[in-house]
Design a protein around this nucleic acid. Sequence first.
DNA 1: AAGCTAGACAACCGCGTTCCG
DNA 2: TCGGAACGCGGTTGTCTAGCT
Length: 367
Amino acid sequence: MVRPPCCEKLALKRGLWTAEEDAKILAHVLKYGTGNWTAVPKKAGLKRCGKSCRLRWTNYLRPDLKHDSFTPEEEEMIIRLHAAIGSRWSIIAQQLPGRTDNDVKNHWNTKLRKKLSEIGIDPVTHKPFSQILADYGNIGGLRKPGTRIGSLNKDLRNAAMLKSEQSPSSSLGFPSIVSQVMLSTISSQNERTQDTFLRNNHNGNHSLDLLAELQAIKLVTETSNCIKKETIPLPIFVEDSLSSSSSSSLTCSTAAKEKSPPDLSWHDFLLDDAFVPADPQEQDIMAEHSSKKPASQKQDVIPQNETPCNEAAAQECAKAKGMEAAVPRNDFQPSSSSDISFLEAMLDQQYDMCLDFPNLLEEPFYY
DNA sequence: AAGCTAGACAACCGCGTTCCG
DNA sequence: TCGGAACGCGGTTGTCTAGCT
């Protein structure tokens, strides 16, 4: 392995920390506080780079950290936040006092992802595998039932294999199994949240997922300082904002509800964008162009000068690539004409891709 | 008892963002 | 305004350990 330049040049120590080194860091922080980590190794008498010291402090030595195992409540929180905002581990960790982003990330990768897969939930999309498989089979009407599944992610394929081994006659029919296992696994105490979780993960509309994700990021950012464990603003907003029914089982905190607008739509994320043309047709064109942007662009913050629709389009396009290219149009009821034009642009593009590259959809690729 | 394997967790790396002179 | 340093984040790799053969 290649060492980073600073460590290479100074022959700095790497690898696991000793108790003596930990003590030096602790003593230094007690004396000087945190900050200016590049100076810490010298001041504390350590042969480590400052970055290593900072990491050791933030991930392990901080006195407010919990070192015991994750509780079912914390696990449920991680799952739900991940469903809403993806792998923004630092944001998720902020909602779990005493946990670091590294903790959360490791726990997700080693336990939760597998747990979800085992009960038939895709840990990437947080949807039942059966639904993803069904959607995958419906891409543009091109895919026939029973065709090979090649581009699904590893977890999905592994779990699909597992399930088909366990019950060969119904490899596509485990939503009921999923529901039962979820009810006993995710959390044994909170049936109300389980129900919401399940329903939201079964609702099956990817566009709604994306909207929920954006809303969750917005809300988490806004309310991160006033959150208690019992009133965490769980990111289940889809029903609140887009559905007229079934409001009784929502798990948003009261505070969160008070802070969030009653009806969120795409417009809530359009922040005075001077580049958004008023003409819906032009918006469609822009959406189409922007969806061709590199998927590697950062999306942590919704930029002031860029339409979230465009960012969302790029993100949605990347997600849809391997997951579900076909979203039933009649499942979604947009709240404005720009919502319609955005969605139509996306759906039209997906449809065009299906027509242009049927071979791509027919030919699976493997990781 | 030795070797192998998988799980869990700690640490590292690279890149993007922010800060500051 | 610019460039470098510092910082933060997410993905990946390394290491240790328990369980199994």
